[in-house]
Amino acid sequence: MVIIETKNLSYTYPGGTKPSLNDVSIKIKAGEFALITGSSGSRKTTICRCFNGLIPHFYKGELEGEIRVADKDTTKHPTFEMAKEVGLVFQNPENQLFALSIEKDVAFGLENLGVPREKMRQRVDWALKLAGIYDLRERSPHEISGGQQQRVAIAAVLAMQPKIIVLDEPTSFLDPLSAKKIFEVIHDLNRKLGITVVLVEHRLDLTAKYADHIIIMDKGRVCQDGNPRTILGAESTRLIGVGIPKATLLFQMLAKDGLKLGSVVPLSSDEIAQSLLEAIKPHD
C-alpha cells in the first residue's frame, strides 16, 4: 500500500522566482524505511514540509501537482489534522521543545488534540519508554544533552501515534555516538511498530544499512529513486556528489581492480567484512 504519493509536484516559496520543487513524483509504501538524500540546496527540507501540509498551509506559496499522504490530500486538510498521521522531527533539537519539563513536552501534541488526562499519561509514558528517556521525564530541556533532546522530539511526535514519522537531518548537530543511538531508535520504531519512516540525511555511512528505499534529490528534482544497493552501487550516483558509505566505495574500488566480492552491494562495514571473509573461505 502506498502511503505517501506525489505526482508532478512543483512548489515555489512566496516571493521566489524559481520553483524549489520541480516535478517531483515519488511513492513511499506503508512500513518502509525511506531515505531521502542529496547535497545542500537539493530541497530535501522543502519536500518534508509538504508531507504534513506545512506547505502550503503555513508557508503559503504556489503548489502544483498532486500530493496524498495517508489517504489525505494535504492541501485540503490543515496541518493539525495531518499531525495525527505524520510526525515531523526537525534538525535543531533545541527549537522544537517548548515546555519546561520533558514529559510536558511529549504531552504537548496530545494536549492540543484534547486527549483526556488519563489516556494522555499512558501515551506519554509509552512514548518516553520507546525513546529510552523515561528516566529523564521530569528534567528540564536544558539539563539534557542534544542527543537526548532529539529523542524527546521523537517521543513527542510518537505520542500522537502517527502512521509516518518524517525526520529532517535529525542528527546533524549530534556527535556520532548520539547519532547512532537516534538511528537505532528510529530503526526499532520502523521494525517493531511498523511505522513508516522517512529519513532525510546525508550521513549515509550510518544510515544506508537501514533503508529499504532511497531517493536522491538534486536542485529540487528527484534524480535517483529505488533500491539502496542498486543506487548506491552505481557509478553514476558517486558523480552526483552524494556521500556514499565507505564500505560501498571500498567494494567498488576493489571491483575496479578486478576483485569482485559477489553480487550484493554492501552498505555497512559489517556487510563488506562478511563478503571479504567469504571470498577467502573456499581457498583455505
Binding site: D175, P176, L177, K180, D205, P245, K246, A247, L250, S269, D270, I272, A273, Q274, L276, L277, I280
Partner: peptide
Amino acid sequence: SSVVPPQVVQIFSRLNEL
C-alpha cells in the same frame, strides 16, 4: 571517549584472520 571508529577501522577490525 565515546568516539565511534572510522569505517575503515571497523572493517579491518572484523578481518583479524587476514
